[in-house]
Simulated assay, not measured.
Amino acid sequence: DYSSTIRGIEELCSKRDELNRQIKQEEEEKERLQHDIRVLSEKLSRVNESLTQRLAARATFDRTIAETEAAYTKILESSQSLLSVLKQEAGNLSKATEPRRTEH
């Protein structure tokens, strides 16, 4: 029958139109997602660069702190040695400068 054929064609056209609408929506979503991916990739790249620089700076701080602490420890050890030597020499000088007792 002619009218059922027309109805069938109209139904197919309607389904195709709905499918076209869905395709258009998905293509738009795809474009949005691709844009978001580009933006996020650029952000990730910037964060990676910054992170690399900060990690290098932290390593420099760590190295400087370790070297400074080691030098400070050596200074403390040297100070203790010097203090011991000074005390010993002061004791020797005191003995040397004490008046000698003469026994009668």
Score class of each variant (00 low, 15 high):
residue 1 D to Y: 11
residue 1 D to S: 15
residue 2 Y to I: 09
residue 2 Y to K: 12
residue 4 S to W: 01
residue 6 I to R: 06
residue 7 R to V: 00
residue 7 R to D: 05
residue 7 R to G: 00
residue 8 G to C: 08
residue 9 I to H: 02
residue 9 I to G: 00
residue 11 E to K: 11
residue 12 L to Q: 12
residue 12 L to M: 08
residue 13 C to I: 12
residue 16 R to D: 08
residue 16 R to N: 14
residue 19 L to E: 13
residue 19 L to C: 06
residue 19 L to T: 12
residue 20 N to V: 03
residue 20 N to H: 00
residue 20 N to T: 02
residue 20 N to G: 00
residue 21 R to Q: 12
residue 21 R to P: 08
residue 23 I to V: 15
residue 24 K to P: 00
residue 24 K to R: 08
residue 26 E to V: 14
residue 28 E to Y: 06
residue 29 E to G: 08
residue 30 K to W: 05
residue 31 E to V: 04
residue 32 R to A: 12
residue 32 R to K: 13
residue 33 L to H: 07
residue 35 H to K: 08
residue 35 H to V: 03
residue 36 D to C: 01
residue 37 I to P: 01
residue 38 R to S: 13
residue 38 R to D: 14
residue 38 R to K: 14
residue 39 V to A: 03
residue 41 S to R: 08
residue 46 R to V: 11
residue 47 V to S: 07
residue 47 V to P: 04
residue 47 V to W: 13
residue 48 N to G: 02
residue 48 N to P: 02
residue 48 N to W: 02
residue 49 E to D: 12
residue 51 L to D: 02
residue 52 T to Q: 07
residue 52 T to C: 04
residue 54 R to I: 09
residue 55 L to G: 04
residue 55 L to E: 13
residue 56 A to T: 11
residue 58 R to A: 09
residue 58 R to H: 11
residue 58 R to P: 04
residue 60 T to S: 13
residue 60 T to Y: 07
residue 62 D to R: 08
residue 63 R to Y: 14
residue 64 T to G: 09
residue 65 I to C: 08
residue 66 A to Q: 03
residue 67 E to C: 08
residue 67 E to H: 11
residue 67 E to F: 04
residue 68 T to N: 11
residue 70 A to M: 05
residue 71 A to G: 02
residue 72 Y to I: 10
residue 72 Y to H: 12
residue 74 K to A: 15
residue 74 K to E: 13
residue 75 I to Q: 12
residue 76 L to Y: 01
residue 76 L to M: 09
residue 77 E to W: 06
residue 77 E to M: 09
residue 77 E to G: 10
residue 79 S to P: 04
residue 80 Q to P: 01
residue 82 L to P: 01
residue 82 L to W: 02
residue 83 L to T: 12
residue 83 L to R: 07
residue 84 S to A: 09
residue 85 V to G: 05
residue 85 V to F: 05
residue 85 V to D: 09
residue 86 L to E: 07
residue 87 K to N: 05
residue 87 K to I: 01
residue 88 Q to W: 03
residue 88 Q to I: 00
residue 89 E to A: 02
residue 90 A to C: 05
residue 90 A to L: 11
residue 91 G to Y: 01
residue 92 N to A: 09
residue 92 N to G: 00
residue 92 N to H: 07
residue 93 L to P: 01
residue 96 A to M: 02
residue 97 T to Y: 14
residue 98 E to H: 11
residue 99 P to M: 07
residue 100 R to I: 10
residue 100 R to P: 04
residue 101 R to E: 13
residue 101 R to Q: 09
residue 102 T to W: 05
residue 103 E to W: 04
